[in-house]
Design a protein around this nucleic acid. Structure first.
Lengths: 335, 335
DNA sequence: GTGAAAGCGCTAACAC
DNA sequence: GTGTTAGCGCTTTCAC
């Protein structure tokens, strides 16, 4: 690796003149600049990031923590964010936390060590531990979910999609389509996102005076296989079911699989609405109705907030609220 | 941010003693160590990466370049690699290149600036330009594909899956299942991976004395929509087709969509084999037969090679060869 | 056992 | 318009 001093030696100029030539800042004669750049090129010079960021306290990188890279739900979010960040010469560093708190804490520690200038933090479960760790970093962090334990002087930005409302919309849609026995397939209610979503389901049932049947709620792990198994146990319980909402598309696909296996007619025998509106929702037959959480916009907004903090030095926190959207497809058509 | 000097001041010890306490290296009295660590904790001290890596010429990060995060093909590869790297305290930094050469060059430039200690480089198209850029970095890079233009003194590691053989297996499978008019849906043949795969198709046809019909080859862009459109144009050409191989699962799903739309009986009217064997292959009905390229193992091997270079200082290059595998499912069952 | 000091490569303030 | 210098926070060698 060559450095500024080598270029200085070879070109016969001082290191600071070399620096001027390379950075474009400060006064410099055109001929010397050219001469220096020529030497730099010959040496295949590239600035060393570590030195630069030690000096400037900037890394030009953004940490993007996602729970799971295998879930297409995050693709568009990543895309939306990355595109905007790139425009401001910020690189996106993807880190995946495997849905695991201790991994999340490691990533926050990375921010603390200044692996990046800021973080977009996606988690299903903001809790006291991870939020406290984020507080300690004292760095720009955008949360992509609500967290109810915020303190008075907390200064986080966040982009919030109303999961509860999304679930309300899904449930209402099935009710209006004529369903009376609507099952809910959801994750661990200790996780905040699952909890919020479940609340939307309860609220909709209440509004339409439908009695909640606890046996119609099954728990699964947000995977296709999990959805398949959970739906099987539900069916084997021999309950009357005419609609089901799954808390993500992958589980929805698991449900579809089993319907095919058992020759159930989707939309006639049972209507399905899922969550996330990813590519997967359009892969199966019939295609799944799904709640669109508008991830690309979440990503864009998160990036925007971060850019404001880092580049424009905004001090006050901002909260952005995004409305979910119901996308109706064949899996829940009225006969 | 606190640093070693602050801790030194507050604890009453010199910076170098503080460093000893924090690193665990060198002689230090147990009581002073404890005292120093206490202060460090009180100040919420974390070492600054930039300073560390400037000094040590190590970042403990690995750059992982992938063409497309939206393609589940890479998931398992990332998983396989990350798990191994994590065990050696190397963090994986995902960078996606959007299938774009200039983006790839940017990522290589990042390596040059020592954003990471090494790189796992996935590309559909290793060409003189990107390979030359990699050469110039003089850093450990593992290529996950073959590149024919290697020079005598090149010292790259690579993990190589035989795409040609995979395609040969797919084609042979359809032939043995009774297909006579096998279409091929593939990407731009200027891209090396597409080209290799196409060769496997030609070779299999040749071996079984089936005349190659150029009209049966369609080009698509490795997306579901692209597959759908390409297959449509193929059908509208009113050719006799009893089998089709798609160069990835997403295009395969596009084909399945159209089959459903036109009420074609998959496996009876037309047999389908796709490539990659991702989750998507098991999402549709009937499930797709697919060539498994064993991505998780690719990732693991790539990580292993990199670790050997970085930690064990291996100097000589290594090449690892992985055999593809055919996974037969309902889309290509013999009647 | 502890302290002092140099240097990784860059930037920016200041001197000439 | 160019050169000198100090310092970012850490590690490591040498001195005591």
């Amino acid at each position: 690796m060559s450095n500024i001093y080598e270029i200085a030696k070879l070109s016969g100029y001082s290191p600071s003149t070399v620096a001027r030539a390379l950075s474009g800042n400060g006064y410099i004669k055109d001929t010397t600049k050219k001469a220096i750049l020529k030497v730099a090129k010959a040496l295949n010079y590239t600035p060393t990031l570590a030195a630069k960021s030690l000096r400037n306290n900037r890394t030009d990188k953004i940490l993007f923590c996602i729970p799971d890279i295998c879930n297409p739900f995050y693709f568009n979010m990543i895309k939306g964010a990355t595109e905007l960040l790139t425009k401001h010469d910020l690189f996106t560093m993807l880190l995946y936390t495997k849905h695991d708190l201790s991994e999340e804490l490691k990533m926050i520690e990375l921010l603390n060590q200044r692996y990046g200038d800021g973080m977009i933090y996606v988690s299903f479960n903001f809790c006291d531990q991870n939020i406290e760790a984020v507080r300690k970093t004292n760095m720009p962090v955008v949360l992509t979910n609500k967290y109810d334990g915020l303190k008075e002087d907390d200064n986080f930005d966040y982009v919030y999609v109303d999961h509860k409302k999304g679930m309300f919309m899904a449930t209402e849609h099935l009710i209006k389509a004529g369903c009376q026995h609507i099952a809910l397939m959801i994750g661990d209610l200790k996780e905040q996102t699952s909890k919020e979503r479940a609340e939307g389901y309860f609220e909709a049932l209440k509004k339409y005076n439908i009695n909640m049947n606890k046996d119609l709620i099954v728990y699964a792990d947000y995977t296709k296989e999990g959805g398949y198994r959970a739906f099987k146990s539900l069916l084997d319980y021999s309950l009357e079911i005419d609609g089901i909402i799954t808390a993500n598309d992958l589980m929805g696909i698991g449900v579809v699989s089993l319907c095919h296996e058992r020759s159930m007619n989707i939309s006639k025998d049972i209507k399905i609405v899922s969550f996330d509106n990813t590519d997967y929702a359009r892969c199966v037959h019939p295609r799944l109705s799904s709640i669109d959480l508008r991830e690309e916009e979440i990503g864009e907004h998160a990036a925007k907030l971060l850019i404001e903090r880092i580049i424009k030095k905004r001090k006050k926190s901002k909260k952005i609220y995004i409305e979910p959207r119901l996308v109706v497809r064949e899996s829940s058509h009225r006969e």
